[in-house]
């Protein structure tokens, strides 16, 4: 069994990636043995207002319990709290919200981000911070997007010691640095890569903070499944990373 913490519907403007509907994504993930996925709509990343894409996400996932909708909010917008209210109305059991520094015009140390973090903690909704969606070295040549750096992430974790966000898209080096610096966070695995990466992280006790993510549709879905399956780690660690950590962290019913 696998729970996927990083899967997306909708179109990405660069490359020739499949732009799936929720129904198509659900079928695709099921065919790979992924029982459940946290899903966001890529249309919310580049649009000036993320809500049309978020509304589509909620509508398409409403009758699909395998797909857990995670709206992408933009704290740079003055109306972010109204957007959060609407998301909570559309999905009364909202599990998480994503933000995308680097893609939206805000800094992690801004007042609005702090207010968003407080509002999420009050509502018991988890925060996912997308450090990157793609390998920025190979992004469309005219784009100048920068990922949130290690020090900005570390400062953010220190400023919100009880938040424990999911940092999505960390590389192995970034993950190791943030672990060394301390701070409460969990992380997904799609951008974690080096020979024996999962094995070495588990040996250092990181199995409680890692979660499986396929990064569909950016990556070949099978690739990160194979990464987890091939790692020489105890079965308990494989289950923890594969689904148990995510089930507990996001309080997913029936998992």
């Amino acid at each position: 069994m696998l729970i996927d913490t990083s899967a997306y519907i909708g179109a990405w403007p660069f490359g020739h990636l499949p732009a799936r509907s929720a129904a198509e994504l659900g079928r695709h993930l099921r065919s790979h043995g992924i029982a459940r996925a946290l899903v966001s709509h890529l249309g919310a990343v580049f649009a000036p207002d993320p809500m049309p894409a978020n509304r589509t996400l909620f509508a398409e996932t409403r009758r699909r319990p395998a797909l857990v909708p995670v709206p992408i909010l933009n704290p740079a917008l003055a109306v972010w709290s109204e957007h959060l209210d609407e998301c909570c109305r559309l999905a009364p059991a909202l599990r998480a919200v994503r933000i995308a520094p680097g893609y939206h015009d805000f800094q992690l140390d801004s007042l609005r981000v702090s207010a968003l973090c407080a509002a999420l903690q009050e509502r018991r909704v988890r925060l996912i911070v997308n450090v990157r969606f793609v390998d920025l070295r190979l992004d469309y040549f005219a784009l100048k997007i920068q990922s949130a750096g290690e020090s900005a992430l570390h400062d953010f974790l220190r400023a919100h010691p009880r938040l424990q966000p999911l940092l999505s898209g960390l590389t192995l080096a970034e993950l190791r640095t943030l672990q060394r610096l301390g701070g409460r966070f969990v992380a997904d695995i799609p951008f974690v890569e080096w020979l024996y990466s999962i094995e070495s992280l588990v040996a250092q006790g990181a199995q409680t903070r890692l979660m499986f993510g396929s990064q569909t549709p950016f990556f070949v879905t099978q690739a990160n499944i194979a990464k987890l399956e091939s790692a020489l780690i105890p079965a308990s660690a494989r289950h923890a990373i594969g689904w148990r950590n995510a089930a507990r962290f996001f309080s997913l019913p029936g998992a």
Partner: peptide
């Protein structure tokens, strides 16, 4: 390109295409 890449991933990308 191991060890920079994980062979399970690089093979998985071919087998999963």
């Amino acid at each position: 390109d191991l060890p920079i890449r994980e062979p399970a991933v690089t093979l998985g990308r071919v087998l999963g295409s």
